[in-house]
Design a protein around this nucleic acid. Structure first.
Length: 473
RNA sequence: GGCACGUUGGCCGAGGAGUUAGGCAAAAGUCUGCAAAACUUUUUACACGAGUGCGAGUCUCGUACGUGCCUCCA
Protein backbone atom coordinates (compact mmCIF):
# COMPACT_ATOMS: atom_id res chain seq x y z
CA UNK A 1 0.00 0.00 0.00
CA UNK A 2 1.31 3.40 -0.98
CA UNK A 3 0.42 6.84 0.33
CA UNK A 4 1.61 10.33 -0.47
CA UNK A 5 3.67 11.73 2.36
CA UNK A 6 3.75 15.51 2.71
CA UNK A 7 6.96 14.91 4.64
CA UNK A 8 9.18 14.55 1.58
CA UNK A 9 6.43 15.25 -0.95
CA UNK A 10 6.37 11.81 -2.51
CA UNK A 11 4.58 8.50 -2.68
CA UNK A 12 5.86 6.04 -0.12
CA UNK A 13 5.16 2.49 0.89
CA UNK A 14 3.15 2.38 4.05
CA UNK A 15 5.26 0.51 6.58
CA UNK A 16 4.21 0.60 10.24
CA UNK A 17 6.79 1.84 12.74
CA UNK A 18 6.24 -1.30 14.74
CA UNK A 19 4.43 -4.58 14.27
CA UNK A 20 1.54 -4.57 11.81
CA UNK A 21 -0.28 -1.84 13.62
CA UNK A 22 -0.77 1.74 12.46
CA UNK A 23 -1.36 4.60 14.84
CA UNK A 24 -3.24 7.48 13.25
CA UNK A 25 -4.02 10.93 14.57
CA UNK A 26 -6.50 13.20 12.82
CA UNK A 27 -7.09 16.84 13.47
CA UNK A 28 -10.78 16.95 14.13
CA UNK A 29 -13.37 19.69 14.06
CA UNK A 30 -13.62 22.84 16.10
CA UNK A 31 -16.90 22.19 17.79
CA UNK A 32 -18.56 25.60 17.86
CA UNK A 33 -21.08 25.16 15.02
CA UNK A 34 -22.31 22.69 12.42
CA UNK A 35 -19.37 21.46 10.38
CA UNK A 36 -19.44 22.37 6.69
CA UNK A 37 -19.15 20.10 3.67
CA UNK A 38 -15.46 20.89 3.33
CA UNK A 39 -14.84 19.45 6.79
CA UNK A 40 -16.88 16.45 5.82
CA UNK A 41 -14.77 15.77 2.74
CA UNK A 42 -11.72 15.79 4.95
CA UNK A 43 -13.17 13.20 7.29
CA UNK A 44 -14.32 11.07 4.38
CA UNK A 45 -10.67 10.92 3.34
CA UNK A 46 -9.63 9.75 6.80
CA UNK A 47 -12.40 7.18 6.79
CA UNK A 48 -11.28 5.88 3.39
CA UNK A 49 -7.74 5.63 4.66
CA UNK A 50 -8.89 3.52 7.59
CA UNK A 51 -10.95 1.28 5.35
CA UNK A 52 -8.06 0.63 2.99
CA UNK A 53 -5.69 0.02 5.86
CA UNK A 54 -8.07 -2.57 7.25
CA UNK A 55 -8.43 -4.24 3.84
CA UNK A 56 -4.65 -4.48 3.71
CA UNK A 57 -4.73 -6.43 6.97
CA UNK A 58 -3.10 -3.85 9.18
CA UNK A 59 -4.39 -3.21 12.64
CA UNK A 60 -5.08 0.38 13.47
CA UNK A 61 -5.55 2.72 16.34
CA UNK A 62 -7.22 5.96 15.35
CA UNK A 63 -7.43 9.04 17.52
CA UNK A 64 -9.29 12.20 16.57
CA UNK A 65 -9.50 15.33 18.62
CA UNK A 66 -12.24 17.85 19.14
CA UNK A 67 -10.88 21.35 19.32
CA UNK A 68 -13.01 22.61 22.17
CA UNK A 69 -10.75 25.23 23.69
CA UNK A 70 -10.02 28.02 21.23
CA UNK A 71 -11.12 31.55 20.34
CA UNK A 72 -14.14 30.45 18.38
CA UNK A 73 -15.58 27.97 20.85
CA UNK A 74 -15.07 30.42 23.71
CA UNK A 75 -16.61 33.36 21.86
CA UNK A 76 -19.60 31.33 20.73
CA UNK A 77 -20.22 29.79 24.15
CA UNK A 78 -20.28 33.18 25.82
CA UNK A 79 -22.64 34.48 23.18
CA UNK A 80 -24.91 31.44 23.45
CA UNK A 81 -24.93 31.10 27.22
CA UNK A 82 -24.46 34.60 28.59
CA UNK A 83 -24.22 34.88 32.34
CA UNK A 84 -23.26 31.23 32.83
CA UNK A 85 -20.02 30.10 34.32
CA UNK A 86 -17.69 30.40 31.36
CA UNK A 87 -16.26 26.89 31.61
CA UNK A 88 -19.71 25.36 31.98
CA UNK A 89 -20.90 27.33 28.97
CA UNK A 90 -17.95 26.09 26.96
CA UNK A 91 -18.63 22.49 27.92
CA UNK A 92 -22.29 22.87 27.12
CA UNK A 93 -21.67 24.30 23.66
CA UNK A 94 -18.93 21.93 22.63
CA UNK A 95 -20.80 18.89 23.91
CA UNK A 96 -23.79 19.91 21.83
CA UNK A 97 -21.80 20.20 18.60
CA UNK A 98 -19.81 17.05 19.33
CA UNK A 99 -23.04 15.09 19.24
CA UNK A 100 -24.08 16.69 15.98
CA UNK A 101 -20.66 15.97 14.50
CA UNK A 102 -20.90 12.31 15.44
CA UNK A 103 -24.32 12.03 13.90
CA UNK A 104 -23.08 13.72 10.70
CA UNK A 105 -20.23 11.21 10.55
CA UNK A 106 -22.68 8.38 10.73
CA UNK A 107 -25.06 9.59 8.04
CA UNK A 108 -22.18 10.35 5.71
CA UNK A 109 -21.07 6.72 6.01
CA UNK A 110 -17.98 7.30 8.13
CA UNK A 111 -17.22 4.63 10.66
CA UNK A 112 -16.99 6.70 13.81
CA UNK A 113 -17.10 3.75 16.16
CA UNK A 114 -13.50 2.68 15.62
CA UNK A 115 -12.17 6.09 16.60
CA UNK A 116 -11.04 7.28 20.00
CA UNK A 117 -12.15 10.86 20.51
CA UNK A 118 -10.17 13.18 22.70
CA UNK A 119 -10.56 16.81 23.62
CA UNK A 120 -8.53 19.55 25.21
CA UNK A 121 -10.96 20.20 28.07
CA UNK A 122 -10.44 16.65 29.28
CA UNK A 123 -6.68 16.71 28.85
CA UNK A 124 -5.46 19.92 30.44
CA UNK A 125 -3.02 18.12 32.81
CA UNK A 126 -1.29 16.36 29.90
CA UNK A 127 -1.04 19.62 28.03
CA UNK A 128 0.43 21.38 31.05
CA UNK A 129 2.87 18.58 31.54
CA UNK A 130 4.21 18.99 28.02
CA UNK A 131 4.47 22.77 28.40
CA UNK A 132 6.31 22.36 31.68
CA UNK A 133 8.77 20.02 30.06
CA UNK A 134 9.35 22.43 27.18
CA UNK A 135 9.83 25.27 29.63
CA UNK A 136 12.33 23.34 31.72
CA UNK A 137 14.20 22.38 28.59
CA UNK A 138 14.31 26.09 27.62
CA UNK A 139 12.23 25.70 24.49
CA UNK A 140 9.50 27.87 25.97
CA UNK A 141 9.52 31.31 27.53
CA UNK A 142 7.05 33.38 29.44
CA UNK A 143 5.91 36.64 27.86
CA UNK A 144 3.35 39.28 28.86
CA UNK A 145 0.35 37.41 27.66
CA UNK A 146 1.38 33.78 27.86
CA UNK A 147 3.96 31.13 27.24
CA UNK A 148 5.57 30.93 23.82
CA UNK A 149 7.56 28.34 21.97
CA UNK A 150 10.99 29.51 20.90
CA UNK A 151 11.72 28.54 17.36
CA UNK A 152 15.26 29.84 17.52
CA UNK A 153 16.01 27.61 20.53
CA UNK A 154 14.59 24.70 18.61
CA UNK A 155 16.81 25.46 15.65
CA UNK A 156 19.83 25.96 17.89
CA UNK A 157 19.30 22.45 19.20
CA UNK A 158 20.07 21.24 15.69
CA UNK A 159 16.54 20.61 14.51
CA UNK A 160 14.84 21.92 11.44
CA UNK A 161 11.76 24.10 11.73
CA UNK A 162 9.97 23.64 8.43
CA UNK A 163 9.94 19.93 7.71
CA UNK A 164 6.73 20.11 5.74
CA UNK A 165 7.17 23.48 4.07
CA UNK A 166 10.01 25.82 3.38
CA UNK A 167 9.83 28.47 6.05
CA UNK A 168 12.00 31.50 6.41
CA UNK A 169 11.55 35.10 7.41
CA UNK A 170 11.33 36.21 3.79
CA UNK A 171 8.16 34.35 3.06
CA UNK A 172 6.34 35.80 5.99
CA UNK A 173 3.63 38.15 4.84
CA UNK A 174 4.55 41.78 5.46
CA UNK A 175 1.22 42.30 7.13
CA UNK A 176 2.06 39.79 9.76
CA UNK A 177 5.16 41.60 10.86
CA UNK A 178 3.30 44.89 10.97
CA UNK A 179 0.44 43.42 12.95
CA UNK A 180 2.69 41.55 15.29
CA UNK A 181 2.19 43.45 18.47
CA UNK A 182 2.86 40.62 20.86
CA UNK A 183 5.87 40.32 23.05
CA UNK A 184 7.57 37.53 21.15
CA UNK A 185 11.20 36.85 20.38
CA UNK A 186 10.49 35.78 16.82
CA UNK A 187 7.53 36.39 14.53
CA UNK A 188 6.95 32.70 14.06
CA UNK A 189 6.97 31.89 17.76
CA UNK A 190 3.56 30.67 18.80
CA UNK A 191 1.56 30.52 22.01
CA UNK A 192 1.60 27.37 24.11
CA UNK A 193 -0.48 28.90 26.86
CA UNK A 194 -2.57 32.06 26.83
CA UNK A 195 -3.21 34.00 30.01
CA UNK A 196 -6.82 34.60 30.88
CA UNK A 197 -8.49 37.63 29.33
CA UNK A 198 -11.75 38.96 30.75
CA UNK A 199 -13.93 36.13 31.97
CA UNK A 200 -12.68 33.51 29.55
CA UNK A 201 -12.63 29.98 30.89
CA UNK A 202 -9.26 29.36 32.49
CA UNK A 203 -7.31 26.67 34.27
CA UNK A 204 -4.83 27.08 37.07
CA UNK A 205 -1.27 26.42 35.94
CA UNK A 206 1.60 26.54 38.41
CA UNK A 207 4.80 26.59 36.46
CA UNK A 208 7.65 26.72 38.96
CA UNK A 209 7.15 30.01 40.80
CA UNK A 210 4.69 31.36 38.23
CA UNK A 211 0.93 31.21 38.60
CA UNK A 212 -0.44 31.29 35.12
CA UNK A 213 -4.22 31.17 35.05
CA UNK A 214 -5.14 30.62 31.42
CA UNK A 215 -5.78 28.15 28.63
CA UNK A 216 -3.78 26.13 26.15
CA UNK A 217 -2.92 27.22 22.61
CA UNK A 218 -4.28 25.22 19.74
CA UNK A 219 -1.06 23.58 18.56
CA UNK A 220 -0.03 22.20 21.94
CA UNK A 221 -3.44 20.59 22.37
CA UNK A 222 -2.82 18.32 19.41
CA UNK A 223 0.78 17.61 20.33
CA UNK A 224 -0.16 16.54 23.82
CA UNK A 225 -3.19 14.50 22.88
CA UNK A 226 -1.59 12.68 19.98
CA UNK A 227 1.46 11.51 21.85
CA UNK A 228 -0.23 10.68 25.15
CA UNK A 229 -2.67 8.49 23.27
CA UNK A 230 -0.47 7.06 20.55
CA UNK A 231 3.09 7.42 21.77
CA UNK A 232 5.96 9.17 20.03
CA UNK A 233 6.56 8.82 17.17
CA UNK A 234 3.32 7.52 15.70
CA UNK A 235 2.53 6.50 12.14
CA UNK A 236 0.15 8.81 10.31
CA UNK A 237 -1.06 12.34 10.91
CA UNK A 238 -3.95 13.61 8.79
CA UNK A 239 -5.63 16.93 8.14
CA UNK A 240 -6.57 19.46 5.49
CA UNK A 241 -3.87 21.23 3.48
CA UNK A 242 -4.49 24.40 5.42
CA UNK A 243 -3.10 22.72 8.52
CA UNK A 244 0.32 22.02 7.03
CA UNK A 245 1.52 25.39 8.16
CA UNK A 246 1.62 26.44 10.86
CA UNK A 247 -0.36 23.83 12.77
CA UNK A 248 1.43 20.62 11.87
CA UNK A 249 4.80 22.29 11.61
CA UNK A 250 4.35 23.55 15.15
CA UNK A 251 3.19 20.20 16.41
CA UNK A 252 6.37 18.65 15.09
CA UNK A 253 8.51 21.27 16.80
CA UNK A 254 6.76 20.99 20.16
CA UNK A 255 6.73 17.25 20.21
CA UNK A 256 10.31 16.73 19.20
CA UNK A 257 12.05 19.59 21.02
CA UNK A 258 14.68 18.11 23.28
CA UNK A 259 14.30 14.63 21.85
CA UNK A 260 16.99 12.74 20.09
CA UNK A 261 14.85 12.20 17.02
CA UNK A 262 12.93 14.85 15.15
CA UNK A 263 10.35 12.30 14.08
CA UNK A 264 6.84 13.11 15.29
CA UNK A 265 4.69 11.27 12.77
CA UNK A 266 6.18 9.13 10.05
CA UNK A 267 3.60 10.09 7.44
CA UNK A 268 1.58 13.25 7.00
CA UNK A 269 -1.44 13.06 4.75
CA UNK A 270 -3.28 16.20 3.70
CA UNK A 271 -6.45 16.46 1.69
CA UNK A 272 -7.07 19.29 -0.74
CA UNK A 273 -9.93 21.64 -0.16
CA UNK A 274 -13.41 21.47 -1.48
CA UNK A 275 -14.38 24.45 -3.61
CA UNK A 276 -17.90 25.59 -4.29
CA UNK A 277 -18.51 26.54 -7.91
CA UNK A 278 -14.77 27.00 -8.26
CA UNK A 279 -14.38 29.33 -5.32
CA UNK A 280 -13.43 29.01 -1.72
CA UNK A 281 -16.35 28.39 0.53
CA UNK A 282 -17.12 31.37 2.68
CA UNK A 283 -20.05 32.89 4.42
CA UNK A 284 -19.64 36.20 2.62
CA UNK A 285 -19.94 34.55 -0.81
CA UNK A 286 -23.08 32.83 0.37
CA UNK A 287 -21.73 29.46 -0.75
CA UNK A 288 -21.22 27.98 2.67
CA UNK A 289 -23.01 24.67 3.05
CA UNK A 290 -23.57 22.07 5.72
CA UNK A 291 -25.04 18.61 5.49
CA UNK A 292 -28.41 20.09 6.37
CA UNK A 293 -28.42 22.16 3.17
CA UNK A 294 -27.79 19.04 1.13
CA UNK A 295 -30.61 17.16 2.80
CA UNK A 296 -32.95 20.11 2.41
CA UNK A 297 -32.34 20.13 -1.33
CA UNK A 298 -33.44 16.51 -1.41
CA UNK A 299 -30.07 14.82 -1.82
CA UNK A 300 -28.76 12.06 0.34
CA UNK A 301 -25.66 12.46 2.50
CA UNK A 302 -24.32 9.25 1.03
CA UNK A 303 -24.55 10.78 -2.46
CA UNK A 304 -22.31 13.54 -1.21
CA UNK A 305 -19.92 10.85 -0.04
CA UNK A 306 -19.88 9.35 -3.51
CA UNK A 307 -19.26 12.79 -4.99
CA UNK A 308 -16.25 13.22 -2.73
CA UNK A 309 -14.90 9.76 -3.55
CA UNK A 310 -15.15 10.50 -7.27
CA UNK A 311 -12.27 12.92 -6.90
CA UNK A 312 -8.86 12.02 -5.61
CA UNK A 313 -8.28 13.45 -2.13
CA UNK A 314 -5.22 15.41 -3.22
CA UNK A 315 -7.20 17.30 -5.84
CA UNK A 316 -9.59 20.11 -5.16
CA UNK A 317 -13.17 18.95 -5.40
CA UNK A 318 -15.53 21.30 -7.09
CA UNK A 319 -18.86 21.15 -5.35
CA UNK A 320 -21.89 22.18 -7.36
CA UNK A 321 -25.48 21.06 -7.28
CA UNK A 322 -25.06 19.58 -10.76
CA UNK A 323 -22.18 17.43 -9.56
CA UNK A 324 -24.14 16.33 -6.56
CA UNK A 325 -27.06 15.47 -8.81
CA UNK A 326 -24.72 13.39 -10.99
CA UNK A 327 -23.39 11.58 -7.94
CA UNK A 328 -26.89 10.91 -6.65
CA UNK A 329 -27.82 9.37 -10.00
CA UNK A 330 -24.72 7.24 -10.05
CA UNK A 331 -25.48 6.07 -6.53
CA UNK A 332 -29.00 5.13 -7.55
CA UNK A 333 -27.54 3.01 -10.35
CA UNK A 334 -25.24 1.23 -7.93
CA UNK A 335 -28.23 0.48 -5.74
CA UNK A 336 -30.10 -0.97 -8.66
CA UNK A 337 -27.29 -3.48 -8.94
CA UNK A 338 -27.21 -4.13 -5.22
CA UNK A 339 -30.91 -5.04 -5.19
CA UNK A 340 -30.28 -7.67 -7.83
CA UNK A 341 -28.65 -9.82 -5.16
CA UNK A 342 -32.15 -10.88 -4.10
CA UNK A 343 -33.27 -11.80 -7.60
CA UNK A 344 -30.77 -14.01 -9.35
CA UNK A 345 -33.18 -15.25 -11.96
CA UNK A 346 -30.94 -15.73 -14.96
CA UNK A 347 -29.15 -19.05 -14.59
CA UNK A 348 -27.52 -18.48 -17.98
CA UNK A 349 -25.77 -15.33 -16.85
CA UNK A 350 -22.09 -15.43 -17.78
CA UNK A 351 -19.71 -16.01 -14.90
CA UNK A 352 -18.33 -12.79 -13.51
CA UNK A 353 -14.82 -12.76 -12.20
CA UNK A 354 -15.48 -11.14 -8.86
CA UNK A 355 -12.06 -12.09 -7.56
CA UNK A 356 -10.36 -10.10 -10.32
CA UNK A 357 -12.63 -7.13 -9.74
CA UNK A 358 -11.85 -7.21 -6.05
CA UNK A 359 -8.15 -7.37 -6.73
CA UNK A 360 -8.34 -4.43 -9.13
CA UNK A 361 -10.38 -2.33 -6.71
CA UNK A 362 -8.10 -3.08 -3.80
CA UNK A 363 -5.11 -2.24 -5.94
CA UNK A 364 -6.59 1.13 -6.87
CA UNK A 365 -7.50 1.94 -3.27
CA UNK A 366 -4.09 0.87 -2.05
CA UNK A 367 -2.46 3.26 -4.50
CA UNK A 368 -2.73 6.40 -2.41
CA UNK A 369 -6.49 5.99 -2.02
CA UNK A 370 -7.37 6.14 -5.67
CA UNK A 371 -11.11 6.06 -5.05
CA UNK A 372 -12.04 7.46 -8.51
CA UNK A 373 -10.28 4.52 -10.16
CA UNK A 374 -11.97 2.08 -7.80
CA UNK A 375 -15.36 3.55 -8.65
CA UNK A 376 -14.64 3.18 -12.33
CA UNK A 377 -14.24 -0.54 -11.77
CA UNK A 378 -17.47 -0.63 -9.80
CA UNK A 379 -19.19 1.01 -12.75
CA UNK A 380 -17.76 -1.62 -15.08
CA UNK A 381 -19.11 -4.41 -12.91
CA UNK A 382 -22.43 -2.61 -12.79
CA UNK A 383 -22.78 -2.48 -16.52
CA UNK A 384 -22.00 -6.21 -16.76
CA UNK A 385 -24.61 -7.01 -14.17
CA UNK A 386 -27.30 -4.76 -15.58
CA UNK A 387 -27.06 -6.56 -18.88
CA UNK A 388 -27.27 -10.21 -17.81
CA UNK A 389 -27.79 -10.14 -14.06
CA UNK A 390 -25.80 -12.62 -12.00
CA UNK A 391 -25.97 -16.36 -12.15
CA UNK A 392 -27.50 -18.03 -9.07
CA UNK A 393 -24.29 -20.09 -8.90
CA UNK A 394 -22.47 -16.94 -7.94
CA UNK A 395 -24.85 -15.91 -5.22
CA UNK A 396 -22.40 -16.03 -2.35
CA UNK A 397 -19.58 -14.51 -4.39
CA UNK A 398 -21.85 -11.63 -5.34
CA UNK A 399 -22.93 -11.07 -1.74
CA UNK A 400 -19.32 -11.08 -0.64
CA UNK A 401 -18.43 -8.66 -3.37
CA UNK A 402 -21.04 -6.19 -2.16
CA UNK A 403 -19.72 -6.52 1.38
CA UNK A 404 -16.24 -5.92 0.09
CA UNK A 405 -17.38 -2.75 -1.68
CA UNK A 406 -18.91 -1.50 1.54
CA UNK A 407 -15.76 -2.30 3.47
CA UNK A 408 -13.73 -0.24 1.03
CA UNK A 409 -16.05 2.58 0.06
CA UNK A 410 -18.79 2.75 2.68
CA UNK A 411 -21.67 3.24 0.27
CA UNK A 412 -24.02 0.87 2.12
CA UNK A 413 -24.76 -1.37 -0.82
CA UNK A 414 -24.63 -4.72 0.97
CA UNK A 415 -27.30 -4.16 3.59
CA UNK A 416 -30.25 -3.37 1.36
CA UNK A 417 -33.27 -5.43 2.34
CA UNK A 418 -35.30 -7.91 0.35
CA UNK A 419 -38.91 -7.08 -0.45
CA UNK A 420 -41.72 -8.68 1.53
CA UNK A 421 -43.52 -11.86 0.55
CA UNK A 422 -46.67 -9.85 -0.12
CA UNK A 423 -44.73 -7.69 -2.53
CA UNK A 424 -43.29 -10.75 -4.20
CA UNK A 425 -46.79 -12.12 -4.50
CA UNK A 426 -47.89 -8.91 -6.22
CA UNK A 427 -45.10 -9.25 -8.74
CA UNK A 428 -46.16 -12.81 -9.49
CA UNK A 429 -49.78 -11.70 -9.93
CA UNK A 430 -48.66 -8.98 -12.29
CA UNK A 431 -46.69 -11.46 -14.36
CA UNK A 432 -49.82 -13.62 -14.61
CA UNK A 433 -51.89 -10.61 -15.66
CA UNK A 434 -49.30 -9.72 -18.26
CA UNK A 435 -49.38 -13.26 -19.58
CA UNK A 436 -53.11 -12.82 -20.10
CA UNK A 437 -52.48 -9.40 -21.67
CA UNK A 438 -54.52 -7.88 -18.90
CA UNK A 439 -52.56 -4.64 -19.09
CA UNK A 440 -54.86 -2.60 -16.87
CA UNK A 441 -54.41 -4.95 -13.97
CA UNK A 442 -50.68 -5.21 -14.58
CA UNK A 443 -50.28 -1.45 -14.52
CA UNK A 444 -52.45 -1.19 -11.47
CA UNK A 445 -50.21 -3.60 -9.58
CA UNK A 446 -47.15 -1.73 -10.71
CA UNK A 447 -48.68 1.46 -9.36
CA UNK A 448 -49.38 -0.30 -6.09
CA UNK A 449 -45.70 -1.26 -5.80
CA UNK A 450 -44.58 2.21 -6.83
CA UNK A 451 -46.60 3.53 -3.92
CA UNK A 452 -44.55 1.21 -1.70
CA UNK A 453 -41.32 2.68 -3.11
CA UNK A 454 -40.61 -0.27 -5.35
CA UNK A 455 -39.88 0.16 -9.00
CA UNK A 456 -40.26 -2.58 -11.58
CA UNK A 457 -38.66 -3.00 -14.95
CA UNK A 458 -39.43 -5.79 -17.33
CA UNK A 459 -36.42 -7.55 -18.79
CA UNK A 460 -36.00 -10.60 -20.93
CA UNK A 461 -35.42 -12.51 -17.69
CA UNK A 462 -38.60 -11.30 -16.03
CA UNK A 463 -39.56 -8.40 -13.80
CA UNK A 464 -36.73 -6.90 -11.78
CA UNK A 465 -37.52 -4.71 -8.79
CA UNK A 466 -35.50 -2.10 -7.00
CA UNK A 467 -36.04 0.08 -3.97
CA UNK A 468 -36.64 3.66 -4.98
CA UNK A 469 -34.99 6.37 -2.96
CA UNK A 470 -36.85 9.35 -1.58
CA UNK A 471 -37.93 11.82 -4.23
CA UNK A 472 -35.60 14.62 -5.03
CA UNK A 473 -36.25 18.27 -4.44
C1' G B 1 6.63 39.21 -2.46
C1' G B 2 7.56 33.64 -0.86
C1' C B 3 5.76 28.48 -1.08
C1' A B 4 2.49 24.69 -3.06
C1' C B 5 -1.11 22.23 -6.04
C1' G B 6 -3.87 22.47 -10.45
C1' U B 7 -5.67 23.65 -15.92
C1' U B 8 -8.48 17.07 -20.01
C1' G B 9 -14.92 16.92 -24.37
C1' G B 10 -21.73 20.27 -22.65
C1' C B 11 -20.50 19.13 -17.09
C1' C B 12 -17.55 16.02 -13.53
C1' G B 13 -13.39 13.44 -13.81
C1' A B 14 -9.18 9.07 -14.32
C1' G B 15 -4.72 8.21 -17.05
C1' G B 16 1.09 10.25 -16.76
C1' A B 17 5.27 8.81 -23.69
C1' G B 18 2.64 4.83 -28.82
C1' U B 19 -3.39 1.13 -28.01
C1' U B 20 -6.86 6.67 -25.63
C1' A B 21 -11.05 5.32 -18.88
C1' G B 22 -15.54 5.98 -16.38
C1' G B 23 -19.74 8.86 -14.65
C1' C B 24 -23.50 12.77 -15.41
C1' A B 25 -26.47 15.63 -18.90
C1' A B 26 -28.83 16.47 -23.71
C1' A B 27 -30.70 14.90 -28.76
C1' A B 28 -31.99 11.09 -32.33
C1' G B 29 -32.67 5.96 -33.29
C1' U B 30 -33.26 0.37 -32.19
C1' C B 31 -36.04 -2.56 -28.84
C1' U B 32 -40.76 -2.53 -26.11
C1' G B 33 -48.35 -3.70 -24.38
C1' C B 34 -46.99 0.69 -21.28
C1' A B 35 -42.83 2.20 -18.35
C1' A B 36 -37.86 1.55 -17.44
C1' A B 37 -33.36 -0.57 -18.72
C1' A B 38 -30.01 -1.79 -22.43
C1' C B 39 -27.73 -0.81 -27.06
C1' U B 40 -26.28 2.57 -31.34
C1' U B 41 -25.20 7.48 -33.03
C1' U B 42 -24.18 12.79 -31.81
C1' U B 43 -16.94 13.06 -36.47
C1' U B 44 -11.71 11.49 -29.63
C1' A B 45 -10.84 16.28 -25.48
C1' C B 46 -6.25 17.12 -22.85
C1' A B 47 -4.69 26.03 -21.28
C1' C B 48 -0.91 28.48 -24.58
C1' G B 49 4.32 28.79 -26.63
C1' A B 50 8.85 26.50 -27.27
C1' G B 51 12.15 22.16 -26.43
C1' U B 52 13.63 16.70 -26.01
C1' G B 53 11.85 12.01 -28.59
C1' C B 54 10.73 7.96 -34.27
C1' G B 55 6.41 9.42 -31.38
C1' A B 56 4.07 14.17 -26.01
C1' G B 57 -2.44 15.31 -22.34
C1' U B 58 1.77 12.30 -20.74
C1' C B 59 8.82 14.56 -19.95
C1' U B 60 11.62 19.84 -19.78
C1' C B 61 11.46 25.09 -19.76
C1' G B 62 8.60 29.41 -20.20
C1' U B 63 3.78 32.07 -20.28
C1' A B 64 -1.26 32.70 -18.88
C1' C B 65 -5.11 31.50 -15.74
C1' G B 66 -7.30 29.07 -11.24
C1' U B 67 -7.04 27.65 -6.07
C1' G B 68 -4.75 27.45 -1.49
C1' C B 69 -1.07 28.47 2.47
C1' C B 70 2.26 32.38 4.44
C1' U B 71 -1.09 34.79 12.87
C1' C B 72 -7.79 31.73 12.53
C1' C B 73 -9.15 27.48 9.07
C1' A B 74 -10.63 20.64 6.94
Amino acid sequence: MKIYNTLGHQLEDLVPLKDQSLRIYSCGPTVYDYIHIGNLSSYIMVDSLKRVIALNDFKLNHVMNFTDVDDKTIARSQQQYPGNDSLEALKELTQHYRQIFLSDMQVIGNDASSTTYVSAIANIPDIQKLITQLYHDKFAYIADDGIYFSISKYQESGKKYGQLTKIDAKNTAQQRIQNDEYDKDNVHDFALWKLQKGDEPAWQFDLDEHQLLGRPGWHIECSAMSTTNLGLPFDIHTGGVDLIFPHHENEIAQSTAGNESSLYAKYFMHNEHLLVEGRKMSKSLNNFYTLRDIIEKGYEPIAFRLMVLQTHYRKQINFSWDNLEAAQNRLNDFRLIADIKWQLINDKAPELNFADYKTAILKALSDDLNTPEALTIVSKVSSDIIENLVSPNQRSEFHQFLSFLDAGLGLSLSNRPDITNDQKQLITERQTARGLKNWDQADQIRQQLTDQAIELRDTSFGAIWSHVEPAQG
